[in-house]
Structures are given as structure tokens and as C-alpha cells.
Design a protein around this nucleic acid. Sequence first.
DNA 1: CTGTTAGCGCATTCAA
DNA 2: TTGAATGCGCTAACAG
Lengths: 345, 345
Amino acid sequence: MSRITLHDVALAAGVSDSTVSRALRGLDKVNPKTRIKIEEIARRQHFVLSKNASSLASGKTMRVTILFTDQLNTWFNSSSMQGAYEVLSTQGYDLVPHIAPSAASLDAYLDALLGNRNSDAIIVVSLSLNERQREILGLTTMPVIGFDSRGTEGFDATVRIDEDDAMTKALTLLQSLGHRRLGFVSMPNVPKLLFSSQLRGVAFVKVAHDLGYADEHIAHFNPGTRDDFRTLDDAASSVVASILSSPVHPSAICVETDDFAVALIYSLRRFGIRVPQDISVIGFDDYAYAPLAGLTTLHQNPVEMSRMAGRLTLGLMKGEPLPQAHVRMRASLVLRDTTAPYHRR
Amino acid sequence: MSRITLHDVALAAGVSDSTVSRALRGLDKVNPKTRIKIEEIARRQHFVLSKNASSLASGKTMRVTILFTDQLNTWFNSSSMQGAYEVLSTQGYDLVPHIAPSAASLDAYLDALLGNRNSDAIIVVSLSLNERQREILGLTTMPVIGFDSRGTEGFDATVRIDEDDAMTKALTLLQSLGHRRLGFVSMPNVPKLLFSSQLRGVAFVKVAHDLGYADEHIAHFNPGTRDDFRTLDDAASSVVASILSSPVHPSAICVETDDFAVALIYSLRRFGIRVPQDISVIGFDDYAYAPLAGLTTLHQNPVEMSRMAGRLTLGLMKGEPLPQAHVRMRASLVLRDTTAPYHRR
DNA sequence: CTGTTAGCGCATTCAA
DNA sequence: TTGAATGCGCTAACAG
């Protein structure tokens, strides 16, 4: 069966195409009676406006791109989609995921974006832009929303966690538990890509200083590049080795993400280090496994956050002035079983 | 800046629009030299074909809808997107998620789909269609692919788990461990929606019979509707009560999903029932938490499966005859810590 | 291998 | 409140 068009509906209703178009889009200035008649006929014929044709004619695509550098099936990424979907779908927008797994493919994608009318806005997840990329996006009129971004630069709006606040909560806890020597463990990184979670390490150092920790009582463990390890567990083993041989001898560590924290705890225990008796561990995210793993962590709610991002996106697309374009959300500290008071070993 | 069009590129290259179109789509019958020239200019001008305009002109939308009844941020659903994305994106297709959370909204969506040219195919996840819905989809020329569907009816292709095979593995294990009385626990269901995982209970009964278990040694626990419980944990508590008061006294149970199995184990332990000493538990899925929870389970790989679904979708859209339209994948049994030999309490 | 001609299905002027 | 005319940016015959 060939497609039913707006024109067919118009013929059946005995009105013009324009009237059908207006009626079906819910515009005013349509006689209530003719509107009802048109809607009735459209329903009977299973007629739906073609998004493509509408887009072409109106210049609005009714689509929002959500850009990842990673797989869609991670806790954080899938939650990002869910929240944004919830908000955008109510206004008829499609949410279209795209993955740019490397710096090069990101460049290519952004280049293309410039001349592109395939979406009305783009939400960039967990990733920040270098100068060249910002420059490119600056040339677009399309709103660019940073979600879980490192900063606000280059974005028309951002939603992200307040790392300083979060780290203050974590370190205040550790200090009150009597820990005098602290460590921070970074994730293995992806070459040339900048992730917001990397700011957690920066915040850690800053807050530790603020709380009176001297440099020689702070250690920062950096496993290097993701390419260096087959799995997260391998990276964790490598970090455990660094921790054990560190002159700082931390009795408590904060980890960039829960994902890596859990791997780390496994690795620590495999080496005979007890958690939390020998070393306390605080994660970041409160991802789905954290309760099961009994992980003390900084809780964030990415679905809630991405709803906010969706709302900002909507506002930007409507051209509304945003009351607050750059939103920081606060993480809350969740106490579970991987933190304990310090005691000498 | 106003949009650059194909025509602009044509002018700059001194050729006609059609030539640019052909060159940029990688069609043959374009002089290599002019192709290179066109590509060069397109790149310089950041030109990208408008998917909307292409769609309108060609009748192909280059978009595939993936339909869920549930949130995008579940282990299974997000994995489904990932696999399909991997395959479809290589051919330039966008993957557009849609959620129809209730039977009514599913009906509405399918109705709309009929007259709709907003996607070239639809992948329906974890859900089967009733007669009316199948009828509606039968009127479409669009390929309809069932992923994790209950059966093949109404679908042009399907990818799903072989439940009988999986349950045979699970029950054979339990039998060899000496368990004489078995139970199956269903998930709380969503009213009026049919899920493939419900077939696991059917397979359980069938296989139990095949293995010589009498009816009075088999119990099926059904917590009822999802609406009846605030949380999965509440539903689990309710099931634990049923298990403890069941005349069958099962010493081993299979659970429809890992998700619910983990909740159940927590609940069992809260009631003082030891797992696996007092009761063995086998889950289904091997979802991300299963290793952490030490859950013995039937392993499936939804990313791999959805890649397969993506390939079938591609074939169907090209109009190729599929060597095998209905694919069943086998689950494998993963032994962990929630199963043990039977011993009298 | 390339150019010409006609739409694809709608939204948007402008009139009426 | 409605209709007629025009074009969004591209692809698809068909010639050449």
C-alpha cells in the first residue's frame, strides 16, 4: 500500500492541504468542527505527518542528537538517554544516539555537524571539547548542551556535578574517621579525550589542601591509558601495586568512578588487603552495583540530571532565555561498608 | 549562516547537482577525478547531505526505530540498542528509540506506524504482539523485527533465546545435584503485555516433566502484577512467603530474570533461609551484577544478539532473502555460588 | 560518465 | 478561518 498523504486527508475532508496541516499540528485558527472532522479522518486512515517532509518544509528536524564517546549500554550513558528521552519525547522530539569512539571520529563528526541540518540540537555527554572543536561548534546555530561536561566553555548550557562539593563531603568524612594519608585513583583514560570525571582528581587535591593535608600525605594514582590494559581488572591490579609501594601509604582512597572502585576492591582483597579494615574506599556515582558491592560512594542521579539537560535543550531550541544555563547538581555521600575509622595496622 | 546545499557544492565544482549527489553517496559511474574534486569541496565547506531531503526524495528514511516497553537504562534494553547501533550505524542508519510503556500506548504507536514513513524498519524488543497488533503491522511494508520476542508470529525476522534448551541445562544441573522438588519464580508482569521471558516458566514445566519430575514436585510462583508492588524487593518478599508455605517445599528454584533472582536471594537471606545451603537459586540473563552477586545463571549476550538483529534488519531493508529469518541463540549455564548439592535440612 | 526534468510531502507565505 | 502558490534539499528517471 502506498503512503497516505496529507493531501488524501484533505480530499476526504473536502478542505485544503493547508487546513489539514494546521489542524493536525494543533494550531489555532481552525474551526473546531473542521478540526474534529479532519482528526477523525486522519485517525481512520492511520495518517501521520511525515517527519521528513515537515522538517524539510519547516527547517526544524524535530530531532536531537545525543553524542557519546562510549557504549550506549553503560549505566551512565543509558541513564542519560532515558532522562533526555523522557523530556524530549513529550514535545515530539526524537532522540538519536551517536557514538564517536575516538578523538578523530569526534572531530569528523563535529565537522559534519556544521553543515548539517539533521538535528535541532546536540547533547554532548561526559566529554569536553578542545579549542578546535569549540571553534567548530561556535559556527553552528544549533544549541550545544554539555551533559556531565568538564566546564561550560563552548556550550550553550551544561548540567554537571559539583565536584568540589562532592569531594569536600568525601574528604571530610575520611578526616573525621581519622585518616591522615589519602589517595586518589583515576580511571584509565582514553587518549586525547577530556572527561568531566577527571576533574574529580583535581577537586580531590584542592579539597585535601583546604582540609589541611600536606602534599606528602596525598597520593594520586594514575593507571595511564585504557589501551595499556586488557581489562579494568588489569588496570586495578596495576593500581594496587602502586598503592602498596607508595611512600604515602594511604589508609583511605577515593576513586574516580564506582566502576573502577569495585574492580579495585576486588583486586585489593585478592592481594590480602582488607577493605575497609586496612584501607577505606569511597567511589563516585552510586551506580547500580554500588549497593550490592556495599560501596560507600558519592551518589548522583543521571536520569534526573539528564531530564534537566532535556529541559534546557527544549528551552534553547525554543529560543527562550534560560534562567540558568549552567546547572551544577550536588552529589550526596552514601555510607556503606567500604569505609571505617582509621586504625594502625 | 544559512545552510550550504548540494547546489552550492555543484556550483563550486562546476558540475550538476546530480553529479554531486552521486559522488557524495559513493555511487559508481562518477569520474574518479570529479569525485575527488567534489569530495574536496564538500569537506572544505563542511557540507553534509540532509537526511530529511534525501529521505523525502528517495522514500528511504535511513532510520530504524527500536521499540521498548520499558526504560532505556536497563541492562537488557541498553545492550539491545548498543548491538543494533553497531551494525546499523555502519550503513548510515540512525537508530531511534521509542518507549511505549503500556498496552494502550503500544496500540497507539502501532496505529500511527501504519501510515508513517518515519523509519525504514522497526525492531520490537522483549515483547510480543497480540492479534490486533499483528494485523496492523501486517498492513505495513516496513520490516518488523522481533528481538527477544515470544514467538515468530507477526515478525519478518526474530532473534531470541532457546528457552527449552536453556531450561534443560538448568534443570539437568539441579537434578544431578540431587534436587527432587523444584520451583519456578516469575517476574511481576505488566498488565496486557506479553514478554518473551514468560516463556521461561513454560519451558521450565515442560522440561521438568521431560526429566521425570511429577506435578506435585513442581511449583510455579507468580507474584502477579507489577502494579501490586512498590518495588521489586516487595514482590520478592511476597514470593518468599509463598515459597516457604508451599506444599512442594522446593529445594531449588529457577527465576525468570537475574534481576528478580538477586532480589529474591536478598529476601530469602533476610528471612534466615541460606542460599545455597537451604535452597539453590538459578537466574536467567547473566546480567551485569550476576558475577558480583555470585549468581548461578543462564548466560545470554544481548549485545551479540542485537547485532544479529541489526544484520537481519539490514537484510530485510535491502530486500534480500534471509538465509534464516528466525534465529534462536543458546544460553549457557554459568556456575557460581547460589547452587549446591541437595541435602536434607 | 553527466545533465535535465520532476517531483517527494509538507509548512509557509500571502490573499481572500 | 481558509485556500493557492511556492519552495525546503535532495533523488530518480531519462536523455545525452
